[in-house]
Nucleic acid binder design. Structure first.
Lengths: 258, 258
DNA sequence: CGCCGCTTTGACATTGCTCAAAGGATGTGG
DNA sequence: CCACATCCTTTGAGCAATGTCAAAGCGGCG
């Protein structure tokens, strides 16, 4: 039943509806898919103290080089990791949604090697490292779930190196779209799922795919002309999921969602 | 004294001299820099069973999609991770040397999301997952060291996304050189350290930096013309480390070597 | 000696970038 | 309810960085 509740919360979270009264539900739901958590495991997580913060679009949760004392958990909205080159070019490294702990690394690595920013206005919970570490030491199942989550995060990063390094602009953008859609709901079946609002601007897509906003715009128009997607501002409709995956060179195995 | 021995072995390993009789020495030395291991921790690692294998250059240790039962440890030589696009373009994701466990992820994620290949001829130890897992469960310090190692691996991957995504060809190659040099010996001080043999071909550099071999060649000549490096085939001499780092936009913080 | 793998060179093609400006939404104050 | 500011998105024209293709050099090795 614990499972049921969490699962329902997870589905809600996927639609962006996060109940304010249970901030840990999306996280717990995710971790339950990664390891078998018993009631005490879940209770331990629910017991984490935190202070919450509202951050607006592009606002920083964390800056490169900063010493970290708390880990952030996305409650509502989206966040992303980024790094800057010496001349100030930005590269987005990953996107995150509610239930994601964006800087779990900092449990062990004390200074941040990248920035974390909110995509649009987002609500964040800051959880003291000590609380998390205590749970990890006491509850191996939670440790394992967090560990697996981190490993999947790493697998996604590897796919991004390939994407940014070796695919052309059109494929690269299509791949990002596929990943975002797939992570949201495994595969777009229902009418509702085919239609969705992308939370990011074209400039942010450009920073994630290592292109210019201008070129992203052109490639999106290209995908539209090919009847793979339809779109109006940030509203997208997937016209042909299979064809889009083919064009995107997308194979979801690396996401480990089974 | 355990520490001393391991440290000496580590230094030897850095020069490619791995004593055949103590295959775990480089790994242990690395882990000791990541967490405080006591004698029992070290003994547990030394007790891991393994079978060793010799693989020749570009030979596969592991293929994308394969189910994994053992974790590989590089004993001698070098290895790298790679992924291929649908049209067969290769992207190298990371380089590894003796003492590195290249596919630790597979303790938790059962199927490989990338290839692992030997750079040149290499000697590999295959360690059963169960043995490693048993040690992780019984010896928290070892678990912590491996965990930190994985996190640093992740930090390097993030830097690579930035490198491949947002830096121009010359900077990108210089950055890779700096990383390789720095990981080998923190900073090139002595004459011996300024001079070294790169283990990889220009084609492999190209696959790591997401360029073509032709362009890599031209950019290496460029760096040479700028008096940053000198080179003859795969022998390199760093002429001006500070200037090279500047050109490379290199800040070693992400390597977490303190 | 002759082969093989790697590196180097040249000429040309192309993808994606730059710069600059216009077009639309949405929101705010008068 | 209009005027205007702001933040995205879209368009165009020209250009630069990097890729492609093909061939030649060059060292080591059997």
């Amino acid at each position: 039943m614990e499972q049921q509740t969490a699962r329902a919360a997870f589905d809600q979270a996927q639609r962006g509806l996060v109940p304010r009264d249970d901030p840990f539900a999306p996280l717990i739901a995710k971790l339950q898919r990664l390891a078998r958590l018993d009631d005490d495991d879940v209770a331990a997580i629910r017991g984490w103290p935190y202070r919450s913060q509202t951050v607006r679009g592009n606002g920083y949760l964390l800056r490169d080089g900063q010493m970290v004392r708390d880990c952030s958990l996305v409650l509502e909205g989206h966040a992303f990791r980024s790094k800057l080159t010496g001349v100030g070019q930005r590269q987005i490294l990953s996107f995150h949604r509610s239930g994601d702990m964006v800087d779990l690394h900092h449990l062990e690595l004390r200074t941040a090697d990248h920035n974390v920013q909110a995509l649009n206005e987002a609500r964040i919970a800051w959880i003291p490292i000590e609380a998390i570490r205590a749970t990890i030491d006491a509850r191996p199942a939670v440790a394992r779930a967090l560990w697996r989550d981190t490993l999947i995060d790493g697998a996604i990063q590897r796919e991004w190196i390939l994407n940014v390094g070796r695919r052309d602009a059109r494929t690269r953008i299509a791949h990002l779209l596929c990943e975002l859609i797939y992570r949201r709901n495994s595969v777009p079946l229902s009418e509702t799922q085919r239609r969705f609002e992308l939370p990011m601007s074209q400039e942010q897509i450009a920073d994630a795919t290592a292109l210019t906003p201008v070129h992203v715009n052109r490639m999106l128009q290209h995908l539209e002309a090919e009847q793979l997607i339809a779109r109006d501002r940030r509203m997208f409709v997937v016209q042909d999921w299979d064809a889009l995956c083919r064009v995107a060179d997308f194979n979801p195995a690396y996401l480990n969602l089974m």
